[in-house]
Nucleic acid binder design. Structure first.
Length: 128
RNA sequence: CUACAAACCCGAGCUAUCGUUUUUCCCGUUAAACGGAAGAAAGGAAAGUCCGGACAGCGAAGAGCAACCCACCGGUUAAUAGCCGGCAUUUCUGCCGCAGGGCAGGAAGAGAGAUAGUGCCACAGAAAAUAACUACUUCCCGGUGCGAGCCGGGCGGAAAAGGUGAAAAUGUGAGGUAAAAGCUCACAGUGUUCCGUGGUAACACGGGAUACGGGUAAACCUUGGGUGCUGUAAUGCCACGUAUAGGAUCGUUAGAGGGCUGCUCGCCCCAUUUGCGCUGCAAAGUGUUCACGAUCCAGGGUAGGCAGCAAGAUCACGCUAGUAAUGGCGCGGCCAGAUAAAUGAUAGUUUAGAAACAGAAUCCGGCUUAUGAGGUUUGUGGCAAU
RNA sequence: GCCAACUUAGCUCAGCUGGUAGAGCAUUUCAUUCGUAAUGAAAGGGUCGUCGGUUCGAGUCCGAUAGUUGGCU
């Protein structure tokens, strides 16, 4: 079994086709300032949960700011994903998740961690 | 000492924990994945995309026109509109001179041609370019007066006076004349050209001849020189998948069309029928069947992998040529390579609080712009001392 | 990755080859009305995104720069 706090290539949501499908057909909910897209995956998926993060270039003009937000989102997801993974593995499903940052101001780490925990528990309950 | 401005340098290091991308090695394995060890992991601008190249494709990259770009000289470079060093020119300050002007220092410096042509120059002014409004004046006519003359008109002369303007026909003095005028002369200024000297050259200085009727080419334009176009999502290969279906227009023995530029020429490519049956020795005849190609529209499929793609006009140091940009030699190093796209998070610590601008995407050389703290140099101002 | 266009009054836009910047709506004042709206008359409001250059003189020409919008792949 891999380490609990990893976030490797196989766990990332990578396929362009899947992303398009997710934005078109996936279900959503919002925990401001983060909007969450999710949908079930086929059995052939490489990992039980495939996750991605993103920021709109409209709200953040500079690439440095976008990179910063995506890094913070990844870090928060990495450190708090464990309960979600165990829940998913127990139910036997596979899902794809995308976290989109919709705020207009740069967040800090502690604030985002709280929001991520909230979003993950909400995701668990809505899947159950 | 201090404040401001400009240029250049620098653009955090260390420790711990948890992670990401990648290279090499080892263990296990058919192989992959996973695990372990060691190494590497954003910038001075990675940015803007303003120039120049490398590389690739387009036919072997052809010709002319058009279009666009460049424009003092020399050097530098793979190359440039960059950089370095000069020159003309403009401007500021100081000094000298009655003045025209000269000398010294600083700054700017997109600077071919305005005697090839065309256009434009508002307002003001007579006139803005083959100048006559006022005033001046020879001559003629008329009036008046004894007369000198005065007044009015006309054909002319004349760029000296006026005042406008950003700009008014080179300036000052003398001669000259009816009045005047580079009309003539002296000095000065500017342009063209010839000779000599210096310099690689632009050009400078001296002398001779000649001309002097403005400005604008970042107005059209002329002259000289240059540029083929498109771009790494280029391009080559592998795998998977589908639709040889449908619609519009056109062409089919002389050309629709294509060949990554707007046009023309030249050259090249390319469709222009195919299959089957029967008669016939064959040539051919006949029947039947599928039309074919180009452009566009609409639609279907895929959106995975490998190469390109990380050792180079490379970096550090030393010596050396050159005023410098830059080059040569020696020695050592290997320094990101992702593909929804890594290079991070938290805590402590170092100097004073880690803070500014900001994130590679084919790669280089410049330019431009943004930028914290500190340091160095230069300039300007203030204060203090000698 | 590459390419193009735009920026003028509070708003929407004109301003062609350089010569003192205009229209419509909006704002203010006056008239009209018992009063408001509509209508009529008048007024104010601009360093033409910013910086530099060419020119006697730039909204206009040239260069740089900031912002906005669009297109191709």
């Amino acid at each position: 079994m891999a380490g609990a706090f990893t976030y490797q290539k196989t766990e990332k949501l990578k396929s362009r086709k899947l992303l398009q499908q997710l934005f078109a057909q996936g279900k959503t909910f919002a925990v401001f300032p983060v909007k969450v897209f999710y949908m079930p995956l086929a059995e052939t998926a490489t990992s039980s949960v495939q996750a991605g993060v993103g920021v709109s270039a409209r709200n953040f003009r500079k690439a440095v700011d976008r990179n910063r937000i995506k890094r913070l989102l990844r870090e928060c997801y990495r450190l708090n994903k464990e309960s979600l993974h165990t829940a998913i593995d127990r139910s036997g499903k596979k899902i794809a998740v995308f976290f989109l940052y919709t705020g207009k101001e740069l967040p800090d780490y502690i604030f985002l961690t709280e929001k991520m925990k909230l979003a993950l528990t909400k995701l668990e309950t809505s899947l159950a």
